[in-house]
Design a protein around this nucleic acid. Structure first.
Length: 565
RNA sequence: GCGCUGUUAGCUCAAUCGGAUAGAGCAUCUGACUUCGGAUCAGAAGGUUAGAGGUUCGAGUCCUCUACGGCGCACCA
């Protein structure tokens, strides 16, 4: 348990006893300025306001009455009614001892675990994954890792776009070309070329457009030849996705795509019509709710075709009934907010009790503050992004480590390049658009993956030199300020993980890990570990714990560590 | 037109849902290498939090208005 959580219990207990009407929110926070103390509460000011009493006197009372854990200094009062707390060196050492023996590293499992479906990534068949997929993929993966770490039961679903209207145009061009073989190595390029051709033809020629619709209808009616072609497209695309996910270190529990719900769609629409939730309008089937928007929500087109809204409704049914989901989290870009408002509202009216959440994120912008594109104006392919990350990392490695074999260099470049990319993508608050530059993304200074990995590598290096073949486990004696700050920071790991998970915002964890890596570097400068026999074992424990927390924290962000750079 | 969302240091971003003197990195300048890995550390400088009102002990954060931007609004996903 973190020091904060321990103190929180004391303060909340006091609050519950004397002011039972106050909300049970977290009252204890780390001080913004450590000159005031280690932790602070503004509870007294809130309580004083509620009871029309003097805040300063209330703070004095809290400081006097609140029972603190053993080894804490007497609480002090400052400002308008803040109460400040300081933990003593002995209690701090004991807390570190407890942390050292805690396999969870201070992460407290949730009291009520849920079964949670996380729907993320979701690329489209027959198209290359591009830069627009990276945030959903990386963010969804991290949320899955964070929530699982806190004890929830997680199902990661890749809701592939494998059944859209694009297949009409694709089939049109593919069949016109005589259904040539799709080479595994260039499958996506080939498929994109066919789609482009079919699209152009259909847009410029009404007869071709009708033909494309007929192709789609034939596919959806189960024509064996079209189904065979469609399966081939899916298999080849899946191989492309698999390679990228492999490099990103991302796995799914289910890759059930839109096609899986194909047969459920008529029933979904009919049920909504029967229950008067949906109605017919201009030949289409729509759901109305003026409090959301004037325009209705379309669930069946006037030509009888279904939309992704319908598929999503069917998917909610499946995940609720078959997967027993308590909660479904969708990770998509901000532009889909309106869609999800409709989807959630419609589901509620249908009687769905599952908690539904839309975790949305902003656009990745280029240096011109417009959505990031490749040089020729097409969407930037994810493969190209990963390759460039690899190459830039390799260039830096070559200059820093000329001794590496080509194999080692390749492996390290891959790890560092991908790590930088994933970290940079999670660093900004997900709600905001952010500006992407290669310089920043693969910078190895500042708040970056290499900076944190370097701190980790330095912990490993010391442990190697110490000749330890197991985790250091000596009791910790705090001798210098840098050690004290490091120790208190280590004890905040659980809070950081909890905050990142609760907010669905991994950037909180990035900030914590950066602080920890920075403090470790300061500790490293100020506190010799191996040279001072009296403090050696204690400091080795701190070094080992720092490494453990850095590794665990990075791993929750989907970033693996390495033993040496 | 309606709705969502944003504007914080020259640039890129933080600020733990209303708390104390708004913090980092990059860039600029100054220091620390006979190093437990310098991919590091210490320091300087940089701010009317877009603007104006309001709410209260207290506002970057909440409410109103204004300016400027991004995005979304029936048959794509």
């Amino acid at each position: 348990m973190s020091l904060r959580a321990e103190l929180e219990q004391c303060v909340s207990a006091w609050a519950a006893q004397h002011f039972p009407d106050l909300p049970a929110e977290p009252w204890v926070r780390p001080c913004t300025d450590e000159r005031h103390g280690h932790f602070q509460t503004h509870l007294a000011m809130v309580a004083a306001k509620a009871t029309r009493q003097n805040p300063r006197e209330m703070a004095e009372r809290l400081a006097r009455e609140c029972e603190l854990p053993k080894g804490w200094e007497k609480a002090t009062v400052a400002g308008a009614g803040f109460v400040n707390f300081r933990v003593g060196p002995e209690a701090l050492g004991q807390a570190i001892d407890a942390l050292r023996q805690d396999p969870n590293l201070g992460i407290i499992p949730v009291k009520r675990p849920e079964t949670i479906v996380i729907d993320f990534s979701s690329p489209n068949i027959a198209k290359a994954m591009h830069v627009g997929h990276i945030r959903s993929t990386v963010l969804g993966d991290s949320l899955a890792r964070l929530l699982r770490r806190l004890g929830h039961q997680i199902t990661r679903i890749n809701h592939l776009g494998d059944w859209g209207t694009q297949f009409g145009k694709l089939l049109l061009a593919y069949r016109a070309a005589g259904r040539p073989p799709i080479e595994p190595d260039h499958a996506i390029d080939q498929l994109e070329e066919f789609y482009k051709k079919g699209h152009q033809e259909a847009e410029s020629d009404p007869a071709k457009m009708a033909q494309a619709r007929a192709e789609l209808a034939a596919l959806q009616d189960g024509d064996p030849e079209r189904l065979k072609d469609w399966r081939l497209f899916c298999e080849r695309s899946a191989e492309h996705f698999r390679r990228i996910y492999e490099r990103l270190g991302i796995r799914f529990d289910s890759i059930r795509g839109e096609s899986a719900y194909h047969e459920d769609l008529p029933r979904v629409v009919q049920t909504l019509l029967d229950r008067k939730i949906a109605e017919t309008s201009q030949g289409a089937v729509v759901v109305r709710n003026p409090s959301i928007a004037e325009e209705p929500y379309l669930i069946r087109k006037s030509d009888g075709a279904f939309l992704y809204a319908t598929t999503d409704l069917a998917a909610i049914q499946y995940r609720t009934e078959e997967l027993k989901a308590d909660r479904i989290i969708y990770v998509t870009d901000a532009r889909q907010q309106l869609h999800f408002r409709w989807l959630f509202d419609t589901s509620k009216r249908w009687g769905v009790k599952t908690e539904l959440e839309h975790v949305w994120f902003g656009t990745i912008l280029g240096p011109d503050r417009k959505p990031l594109k490749s040089r020729d104006g097409t969407p930037l392919k994810l493969v190209d992004l990963l390759n460039e990350a690899h190459e830039r990392a390799a260039a830096i490695l070559t200059s820093k480590r000329p001794d590496l074999t080509p194999e080692d260099l390749g492996a390290k470049a891959e790890l560092l390049g991908i790590a930088s990319l994933k970290y940079a993508d999670q660093l900004p608050n997900r709600n905001l658009d952010y500006v992407f530059t290669w310089e920043k993304l693969l910078a190895f200074d500042g708040n970056t993956a290499p900076y944190i990995l370097n701190a980790y590598v330095r912990t490993r290096s010391i442990l190697r030199k110490a000749g330890l073949n197991q985790r250091p486990s000596a009791p910790v004696k705090i001798a210098q300020p840098e050690e004290e700050v490091l120790a208190r920071l280590l004890l905040r790991f659980g809070d950081a993980v909890e905050l990142a998970a609760a907010d669905r915002k991994p950037h909180h964890l990035c900030g914590y890990l950066y602080d920890l890596a920075g403090q470790y570097h300061r500790f490293f400068e100020a506190c010799p570990v191996l040279q001072l026999p009296a403090l050696r074992d204690s400091r080795l424990t701190l070094v080992g714990l720092t490494g453990d927390v850095l590794r665990e924290g990075l791993s929750l962000l989907g970033i693996p560590t390495l033993e040496e750079m």
